[in-house]
């Protein structure tokens, strides 16, 4: 399984939760994953009930088998200062740049520099190795920007490599693209069984493919159990209301006569939803990608609910793939960083 797992999805589909559950699922038996966020929302900290994450990798959860999830909120400005420090030893000049608004310029306005820094930092973590030459993280999971922006976000390095045609930014951008377009990366899209997210998922997949970015799975999130099927519904609306009223009374419900209509109405709405969900499943099936499904976990995802979701991922084979891939992971030294250093630094 790819070492860099990018999780995107339409707003409101729960991609932060899915990314967190995936990071936990991949952190089996002593393995270590890094969960990164790039949008400055502190969504990971909220999810894990931790304090706001600093620009620093820290352990945020352990999985039952002794695996660890570390988390990092990547801050573009910090990443740029790091970068300047690393390559140019620009301690005080960095501060001067900041005063002049140059850092602000670079991280908020300059085309794509911000996204280059964010993806660059994540790729650095993907490739970082310890002294023994083993990968520091078995997997890096990114809570990425939403579907509508994901292709541009990941592909920005191509654009930047074109704009800055020489120099370290150019090299860095190209190095990042090599990771992103390789099988080391998988971009997963989170969706709900609703029309708009599914449509956006289909569009997103087409865009990713057009940009040669590796699409992973479709994760269908917040799947609700079906409590009644169509046959039951047809029956309900088919004139058995009196019988239903009697059954309600037998079951100890008072004033059942007035309840039958709203109950049947709710059932009919439910049937409509089931029908829509089925249609959306068909659309998703037509996209020809592996899928995973996570159940709806109600309001306020707790840590234990996250573990349950992770377990759900493992049951669906996500963890197994991790186990398969792990054998070849550590010790793999095919990709020395372009900086030639000991593997520290943005994108090196």
């Amino acid at each position: 399984m790819s070492r860099f797992q990018v999780v995107s999805g339409k707003g409101g589909t729960g991609k932060t939760t899915v990314a967190a559950a995936l990071a936990l699922a991949l952190a089996t038996e002593g393995r270590r994953t890094l969960l990164v966020e790039v949008e400055g929302r502190q969504g990971i900290a909220q999810l894990f009930g931790a304090e706001a994450l600093p620009y620093e990798e820290r352990r945020i959860a352990v999985s039952p088998g002794g695996g660890e999830v570390h988390a990092l909120a990547i801050d573009a400005e910090q990443a740029l200062l790091d970068y300047l420090q690393m390559f140019y030893k620009l301690g005080s000049a960095g501060r001067a740049l900041k005063k002049l608004g140059a850092i602000d310029f670079a991280t908020t306005v300059a085309p794509g520099v911000r996204d280059v820094l964010l993806t660059g930092k994540a790729c650095e973590a993907v490739r970082r190795k310890d002294r023994q030459g083993r990968f520091v993280y078995d997997h890096v999971v990114m809570d990425a920007p939403p579907t509508g922006r994901i292709t541009r976000f990941l592909n920005v390095n191509d654009e930047v490599a074109g704009l800055a045609r020489i120099g370290p930014i150019h090299n860095q951008a190209q190095a990042v693209m090599r990771v992103l377009k390789s099988p080391e990366t998988a971009v997963h899209l989170v969706t709900l069984l609703e029309e708009m997210p599914v449509q956006e998922t289909a569009d997103g997949i087409a865009e990713l493919r057009a940009a040669d970015l590796p699409v992973g799975r479709i994760v269908v999130n917040m799947v609700r159990p079906h409590l009644l099927d169509e046959g039951a519904l047809r029956t309900a609306s088919g004139g058995r209301r009196k019988e239903i009223a009697k059954a309600l009374t037998r079951a100890g419900v008072t004033g059942s006569a007035g309840l039958v209509r709203p109950l049947v109405e709710q059932a009919s709405e439910h049937a409509q939803r089931v029908e829509l969900e089925r249609a959306q499943r068909a659309v998703l099936a037509g996209l020809g990608l592996p899928t995973a499904e996570l159940p709806l976990v109600g309001e306020g995802v707790s840590l234990s609910a996250l573990h349950d979701l992770a377990e759900e991922f493992r049951k669906q084979g996500v963890g197994d793939e991790a186990a398969d891939a792990a054998g070849e992971g550590p010790g793999d030294a095919r990709r020395p960083g372009p900086g030639g250093g000991p593997g520290r630094g943005v994108g090196s």
Binding site: L227, D229, G231, T235, G238, R240, E243, A247, L248, V253
Partner: peptide, 28 residues
């Protein structure tokens, strides 16, 4: 299966009113 075959009638017969009502209650 239950829809594409259009077997509304058999499906209706299969479900007892208790089952149906319990389903409505759970949904509620």
């Amino acid at each position: 299966d239950s829809t594409s075959t259009g077997e509304a009638a058999p499906a209706a017969e299969v479900l007892s009113v208790e089952e149906l009502t319990a389903g409505l209650l759970r949904l509620h």
